Computed example of a mutant assay.
Amino acid sequence: AGVGSLSQVSKEEGSALAREFNCPFFETSAAFRYYIDDVFHALVREIRRKEREAVMAMEKRSKPKSSVWKRLKSPFRRKKDSVT
């Protein structure tokens, strides 16, 4: 689309895409500034939510490292225990 041309997406198409991506759907107009601020704020909220999810996922992944370490050390303990 060129400068000054209008690009439109049907409400049904936009709504279906929003459901597919599990995100909010807004009907907006950049030309008339309809709901532009609402979209911006919703976008920031989604980014923050994704960041929180990423942090929680990282924390979950970091916890099993201790159990992996224990599993790696456990064969050596068994050998030591069986020798004595």
Rank of each mutant, 00 (worst) to 15 (best):
G14F: 07
V44W: 08
A16N: 06
V44I: 11
H41Y: 15
R33A: 15
R48Q: 11
L17A: 06
L17V: 05
R45M: 06
F26A: 02
F26Y: 06
E46K: 05
A31F: 14
A30K: 03
G14H: 08
A30R: 02
E51L: 12
I36T: 14
E27K: 00
F40A: 13
E27S: 05
I47F: 06
R49N: 08
E20A: 02
I36C: 14
L43V: 08
Y35K: 12
V44M: 12
V39C: 15
F25K: 03
V44Y: 15
A31P: 07
L17S: 04
F21S: 00
E12L: 10
A30L: 04
A31W: 11
F32G: 10
A31N: 08
R19H: 06
A42W: 07
P24G: 00
H41Q: 15
P24Y: 03
E20D: 01
T28D: 04
G14L: 05
K50C: 10
H41G: 08
S15V: 03
E12W: 07
F40K: 12
S15T: 05
L17K: 07
F40W: 14
Y34P: 06
E12N: 09
E46W: 06
F32Y: 15
K50T: 11
R45P: 04
H41D: 15
E27M: 06
K50L: 12
F21T: 02
T28Y: 06
V39R: 14
C23V: 10
E51Q: 11
T28G: 09
H41K: 12
R49M: 06
R45K: 10
V39F: 08
Y35Q: 14
F25E: 00
F25H: 09
F32N: 13
L17D: 05
C23A: 05
E13D: 12
E13Q: 06
D37C: 09
T28W: 08
I36V: 15
S15F: 10
L43I: 10
R45Q: 14
S29K: 02
V44R: 12
